[in-house]
Amino acid sequence: MKERSFLTTILATMLLLSLGGLTGAVAASLPAVGGVLPDLSPGFNLPKPKDGVVIIQIFSMYCPYCQKDAPQVNRLYEMIEADPSLKGRVRLVGIGAGNSPYEVNVFRTKFNVRFPLYADPDFNIHKKLGEPRTPYFIALKIEPDGSHRIFYSQLGEIGSADDFLAEMIRRWGKRR
């Protein structure tokens, strides 16, 4: 009798904890096109350029591809800033997954990054985004009412800044 009671307790505990794991600690999935970004605060508040676009780069100072891609991402920023129809409406930001503020600053200085970079030292933001490999790019369309919709979610380097920006504008669907 005692043995049965012990077994029941163990099995019930396992079941409860497993359910807790399923409901409370399931890993987030990667941001899907058509969906919305989860709340990434504290640590990152989504900029909301009116009727504009936000491009988020998930990077790491420790990621060789992010290092290699940095000049093209910088060029992307310069192209946005140089175009009066995009400047202020298209915002580019980076989030350093697992990087301390110091490490983010090393990346910023090393590659002369001029757009805002945020630190995510404890991977809190990275986990909410479904733990993408790096670099990873997400682009969101900000509606006039302040809501947003993801229209691009892609692993890997941007490669060519020109092609990437053209693709962003095409998907955004706004006339220049």
Partner: peptide, 27 residues
């Protein structure tokens, strides 16, 4: 038997604990 069950339960639970704090480069 009790000890075996307790061990299995513990390892099952530990294996199920989500843990990941890695940002792997696509490299």
């Amino acid at each position: 038997i009790r000890r075996s069950i307790a061990f299995c339960a513990l390892t099952t639970l530990l294996a199920g604990v989500p843990f990941s704090a890695w940002a792997i480069s696509d490299a």
